[in-house]
Computed example of a mutant assay.
Amino acid sequence: MNDRDDAIPDHGYVHGRGATVSPAARYESARTEAVDDGWHREEESAPLHTEVTMEQARSVISRNDSPDVPFELSINPYRGCEHGCVYCFARPTHAYMGLSPGLDFETRLFAKAGAADRLREALARPGYACRPIALGVNTDAYQPVERRLRITRQVLEVLYDAHHPVTIVTKSALIERDLDLLAPMARDGLAQVAVSVTTLDRTLARRLEPRAAAPQRRIETIGRLNDAGVPVSLLMAPLIPVLTDGEMESLLTEGARAGAVAAGYVLLRLPLEVAPLFEDWLRTHVPLKADHVLARIRDSRGGKLYDARFGRRMTGDGPYAELLRQRFRLARRRAGLAGRMPELDMGRFVPPRPFSGGGQMGLF
């Protein structure tokens, strides 16, 4: 028997997708279950195509009051995420649509048509108070379909025109398309980017995050953002015990070499359906490490796979979580990276002029 996890062939999942199982939406009253009727035969799974549903956005700015999240306002141009990251904490939100947090989350996307118009209206309201807007924090704002739909681009254009500060978290090299907007915004202290890099191991990344940019491509994106004058941080999110924590030092070193000015991490979060999804992924792809990974997660979560308490959910608790914190701080200091990005400038904001119902500029 070969004891190397990377020698185990891919199986039990749809090629090019992250989830190995597709649990039912938790709010649905009906359930389906596969039954062997004697006529089943093994066949190669047909490729799953991504479906995108356009939905008219009535509002786009979400407000956050969580004490351990560093933003008050956010915009998510898309629901669902084609990157297919098996660990994504946002997967359970698809249950509100009557869809599975498994394969549905990464193959059935919703795009917010009219997002830029709704944003312009919100910024033009007399009572609007300018705060940095975090773009794409629930699911990546740079989905593959963004190349065609350009919703994120249109939102950025509104923020650019209004001199409104923005922060972006992404795994996608597509952000380089928008450097013509981000670079001048950054020169005015209005834009920052965090590039999420989980691992430098291309084979592991291809299984964890099957449709996201390769790790080395993300490091290259850090360099291109830096070259354009955009402050960029490296975000190790998530940091996965046993599976990726051994790369912490090398990953921070690579990020610093590329031009990152700061770094942070988020310990793996497994809320609701994400826990069984991730456990099945472990037993499919790295079965010899599965129990060790789960044990370390429980060591960091008070004996459970998830602890939702503020102040603990992002970094964990207990001796093992504290060891990770100390290692990260030391590695970050050795790499010359800061722990926080500089404050953005909110004093340049100029409210957009509202549009009339007919699409013409208002006279007053």
Rank of each mutant, 00 (worst) to 15 (best):
residue 226 N to C: 14
residue 277 L to W: 02
residue 84 G to W: 05
residue 206 R to F: 00
residue 34 A to G: 11
residue 73 L to P: 02
residue 269 R to K: 13
residue 23 P to Y: 01
residue 353 R to F: 04
residue 246 G to R: 06
residue 237 A to L: 02
residue 280 D to N: 12
residue 83 H to P: 12
residue 354 P to K: 15
residue 261 V to L: 11
residue 25 A to V: 11
residue 293 V to H: 06
residue 227 D to C: 09
residue 361 M to D: 14
residue 95 A to L: 02
residue 362 G to W: 14
residue 254 E to R: 11
residue 217 R to L: 12
residue 261 V to D: 03
residue 191 A to H: 14
residue 156 L to A: 03
residue 203 T to Y: 08
residue 225 L to S: 08
residue 311 G to V: 14
residue 242 V to W: 01
residue 130 C to G: 06
residue 298 R to N: 08
residue 249 E to V: 13
residue 333 R to N: 12
residue 301 R to F: 03
residue 110 F to M: 09
residue 206 R to P: 13
residue 193 V to P: 03
residue 204 L to F: 00
residue 294 L to G: 03
residue 279 E to V: 00
residue 299 D to S: 08
residue 272 L to D: 15
residue 136 G to F: 03
residue 214 A to N: 10
residue 278 F to N: 04
residue 98 G to E: 14
residue 177 R to P: 04
residue 323 L to N: 07
residue 166 V to K: 00
residue 343 E to M: 12
residue 313 R to G: 02
residue 201 D to V: 08
residue 200 L to Q: 04
residue 173 A to W: 04
residue 104 D to G: 12
residue 130 C to M: 06
residue 168 I to Q: 06
residue 37 D to T: 06
residue 296 R to Q: 15
residue 184 P to G: 02
residue 27 Y to S: 08
residue 21 V to G: 01
residue 247 E to M: 13
residue 92 P to L: 00
residue 187 R to P: 10
residue 181 L to H: 05
residue 199 T to C: 11
residue 324 L to E: 09
residue 91 R to D: 13
residue 350 V to M: 00
residue 356 S to N: 11
residue 282 L to F: 02
residue 139 T to Y: 06
residue 350 V to R: 15
residue 67 P to H: 05
residue 84 G to T: 05
residue 41 R to E: 13
residue 174 L to A: 10
residue 303 G to Y: 10
residue 137 V to P: 15
residue 360 Q to N: 08
residue 124 A to H: 00
residue 89 F to R: 02
residue 222 I to H: 10
residue 293 V to R: 04
residue 355 F to Y: 05
residue 168 I to V: 12
residue 342 P to H: 08
residue 294 L to P: 03
residue 113 A to P: 03
residue 99 L to K: 15
residue 54 M to H: 08
residue 362 G to Y: 10
residue 85 C to S: 06
residue 213 A to D: 15
residue 175 I to N: 09
residue 48 L to P: 11
residue 289 K to T: 12
residue 252 L to T: 11
residue 157 E to A: 09
residue 219 I to P: 12
residue 343 E to R: 10
residue 42 E to H: 09
residue 298 R to Q: 08
residue 167 T to G: 07
residue 6 D to V: 02
residue 114 G to D: 05
residue 117 D to K: 01
residue 326 Q to R: 13
residue 69 V to P: 01
residue 80 G to F: 04
residue 119 L to E: 00
residue 120 R to L: 04
residue 274 V to C: 05
residue 87 Y to C: 10
residue 28 E to G: 10
residue 250 S to W: 12
residue 277 L to N: 15
residue 131 R to M: 01
residue 35 V to R: 12
residue 203 T to S: 13
residue 186 A to I: 01
residue 152 T to M: 03
residue 144 P to Y: 00
residue 147 R to E: 09
residue 139 T to N: 09
residue 109 L to W: 10
residue 81 C to H: 03
residue 61 I to P: 13
residue 351 P to N: 03
residue 52 V to P: 15
residue 240 I to W: 07
residue 262 A to C: 09
residue 350 V to Y: 00
residue 202 R to F: 03
residue 197 V to G: 07
residue 331 A to P: 12
residue 187 R to A: 07
residue 246 G to F: 02
residue 133 I to L: 13
residue 121 E to G: 05
residue 249 E to R: 13
residue 248 M to N: 09
residue 339 G to R: 06
residue 299 D to C: 00
residue 208 L to D: 11
residue 209 E to Y: 05
residue 189 G to A: 05
residue 229 G to D: 14
residue 112 K to V: 01
residue 64 N to F: 03
residue 123 L to Y: 04
residue 65 D to L: 14
residue 345 D to L: 08
residue 244 T to S: 15
